[in-house]
Design a binder for these strands. Structure first.
Lengths: 210, 210
DNA sequence: CATTTTATGTGATCATTGTCAACATTTGGG
DNA sequence: CCCAAATGTTGACAATGATCACATAAAATG
């Protein structure tokens, strides 16, 4: 990545990387063409050789942020160990884990989370890979396959889980959690609430009301 | 509201009104100082006699949008009629109604909803009046008072209801509802899911899985 | 290898935006 | 009546995204 050359080499990915860094610190507002160009060691107009305009660059950064979120979910899901004595408990713990990963990503990287969902229903050039929604669908299918989620609940399940987890993430990111609630209990309540709405049993490690 | 006078009269509220109109159509991005000044028949710098900067004006518009949302919730809650034969059913229907009102406000006025929650945890100059959160708290207290919500569930209840309803609103506003789901069934699923998570009985008019 | 074509980056410039300072006008209280 | 405070205007500034003509490197072509 020589910076003294007239040609940058792979400016496009460098710009995206710079955008990700900026968004991590300052959110969508920090995605500024001139800043990203400077950070990439290039003049402002060079950006237009790789993106039609700033909106497209921002959209790509946003998509990249969404994929980071989905990767975090996949990562924790894979880390869940199966219990040979209880076939379904693994699937239950995976649902718990991906939900937590989602909210905790938002808590850990609030600005990046904001960037991930800043797009106002813009038609995506191509789908996210991986996609958080697909990870959720997979986890729910697992629950049905192991008999932990009744098939009649399968249809609405993703809506219920997604809205609850995404909503709590937004609340935490925006600092909208009213006192005296604490983020940790809010996360626990949300995750447990999803299980109850889905009529899925709690894992043994769960301690809650009743 | 004479527009040919040197002094406007009540520019502050006119600017807020113009901001609300603009936000309704174009969301937070449409809140531009020069546009609002022009729409109010005034020069750009006049704005600074009433707001320290554009961020404060935007914050006020945002708060006004949140209050509109809360008013919509209060309005439908008051419209719920009590059932003399069933003391608790009114409270149950009110929770249903305010949740629906919240999501349907977001669906009906997506840009305004976006504006309502655009503030990134900014310290509010003064609290919303009315506040959607307080409306929810009132509804939940009603449920406890009528014996429809178990007191042990009261603590987490607002977190569960708020995150689910707010989350689904955000999903709909951003056009993130994946096919083949339809907004209406998504709303129904979310509202019913809240009741199940809170272990509150469904109203008789509810038709859902089991 | 030489030359031409394409891809990529630069520099100057523009319109727009929020902001500010200096000045103008109105209003209202002694 | 007069002065001071409140309110609005004009003109300017810096920063932003965007666009143009031009420069340079890389790649394709003979």
């Amino acid at each position: 990545m020589p910076t003294d050359r007239y040609h940058h080499g792979n400016l496009r990915s460098t710009l995206l990387e710079a955008g990700l860094s900026a968004a991590r610190l300052g959110g969508p507002a920090a995605l500024q063409l001139r800043d990203l160009a400077t950070a990439s060691g290039v003049s402002p107009s060079a950006v237009y050789r790789h993106f039609p305009d700033m909106a497209h660059l921002s959209a790509e950064v946003s998509r990249s942020a969404r994929e980071s979120l989905a990767k975090a979910m996949l990562s924790v899901a894979k880390a869940v160990v199966e219990d040979p004595k209880d076939a379904g408990i693994g699937a239950i713990r995976r649902l718990d884990a991906i939900g937590r990963a989602y909210i905790e990503f938002a808590e850990r990287e609030p600005q990046l989370f904001d960037t991930a969902f800043m797009t106002a229903g813009a038609a995506p050039s191509c789908a996210d890979d991986p996609s958080a929604w697909d990870v959720l669908i997979g986890a729910l299918d697992d629950l049905v396959a192991t008999g932990e989620l009744h098939p009649s609940r399968r249809h609405d399940a993703p809506l219920i889980a997604w809205s609850a987890v995404h909503g709590m993430s937004g609340v935490l990111v925006r600092g909208m959690l009213p006192p005296p609630y604490l983020p940790e209990e809010a996360i626990n309540a949300t995750i447990a609430g999803v299980r109850e709405a889905l009529q899925v049993r709690h894992p043994p490690e769960f301690v809650g009301t009743r």
